[in-house]
């Protein structure tokens, strides 16, 4: 009886079974979708809106300025210069990405290959390699400031090896500040890359390797001819994630330079520049323009990667 009533009610209200299922489905995702719209979509759209306005944040009024913020950004030699110059936000970011992405990928792949072997204590190594990725980047940065200080542990170690005092102020020297952050980030994020590569390695069918072994393929040849090409979807995914992450570099640069992007602009990144413009100058409109340009750059680079790697699908 209850079933009959329910069916009778369902029919006219929800139409077909398919529509009903869709409605139930949307019902389930309504809250997360609403949060996504409120916390992601709305700010993105609003950023585009305020990028064509002059707005100080502490005042209520927005004044429409058209593309003036973008014109100013085009001539802003602290954001970018032509020819490229170190110490400018955009080129620092690209320089960082250019070095850190291959380093992260190579380290991640190497560690994945190691922990994919039937070694003793494999689980320990997997956890140990992944551990830095779990640690807060803020905490790592704060500790790194001490380690890489002129009188820090790193210099003490180098001094012991070379046999005379070595006091390189790694984060206080414009020639080494960003490079030190690169080394630090390659170490902290390669654990995550290892995890992606490990999952991909384990999805490669073993019969491919068995066939290679029967054909007499050596370890090196097997890696370059079989493993590396078959990891193509993983390469695409890891590269995309790394590039996006690298172009968004903020926290390490912020903590290490105490928000200034120094010394001499060497750790100023695109996102840190955005932050400084908005927070230090109370210039939301210009900051939004910086954000829009960074969004377009990241979006374009991801699209280019997608084209370069093709559809990144593998047939075994």
């Amino acid at each position: 009886m209850a079933v009959a009533t329910s069916k009778a009610q369902r029919g006219p209200r929800f139409g077909s079974e398919r529509v009903r299922e869709a409605l139930v489905g949307y019902g389930f995702v309504l809250i997360p979708l609403g949060l996504f719209a409120l916390l992601y979509l709305y700010p993105i759209v609003y950023s585009f809106y305020i990028s064509v306005h002059e707005w100080g944040g502490i005042e209520g009024n927005l004044g429409y300025v058209g593309l003036a913020n973008f014109r100013e950004l085009w001539h802003d030699n602290q954001f970018w210069t032509w020819p490229p110059e170190r110490g400018t936000a955009l080129w620092n970011t690209f320089y960082y990405a250019l070095l850190v992405v291959p380093l992260q990928m190579a380290l991640g792949l190497l560690m994945a290959l190691i922990v994919n072997q039937p070694l003793r204590g494999r689980a320990f190594f997997r956890s140990a390699y992944y551990f830095p990725a779990l640690t807060s980047s803020a905490a790592i940065s704060v500790i790194a400031i001490y380690l890489f200080n002129a009188d820090g542990l790193v210099n003490a170690g180098i001094s012991a090896v070379i046999g005379h005092p070595f006091h390189q102020p790694w984060f206080a020297d414009p020639d080494t500040a960003l490079e030190t952050i690169i080394v630090l980030d390659a170490w902290t994020t390669s654990g995550t890359m290892m995890l992606f590569y490990l999952a991909a390695l384990q999805s490669i069918p073993t019969d491919v390797y068995e066939a290679a072994a029967i054909d007499g393929g050596g370890v090196w040849r097997t890696f370059w001819k079989i493993t590396f090409p078959l990891l193509k979807p993983a390469h695409f995914f890891v590269a995309t994630v790394s590039v996006i992450g690298a172009l968004k570099l903020f926290d390490q640069a912020f903590i290490i330079s105490t928000g200034s992007g120094g010394p001499a602009g060497s750790t100023m990144t695109g996102v840190l520049y955005l932050y400084r413009v908005v927070i230090s100058e109370f210039n939301f409109g210009y900051g939004a323009a910086v954000g829009v340009v960074l969004f377009l750059i990241i979006f374009s680079l991801t699209a280019i990667q997608r084209l370069l790697f093709g559809r990144a699908e593998i047939g075994y």
């Binding site: 030699n77 602290q78 602009g265 400084r276 100058e281």
Partner: peptide, 20 residues
């Protein structure tokens, strides 16, 4: 003046360049 932080950042960079 208003919005001086960017000038200050640039001045810091320039000073480092002159020093080097």
């Amino acid at each position: 003046i208003k919005g001086f932080d960017r000038v200050n950042d640039l001045a810091g960079k320039e000073l480092e360049k002159a020093f080097n």
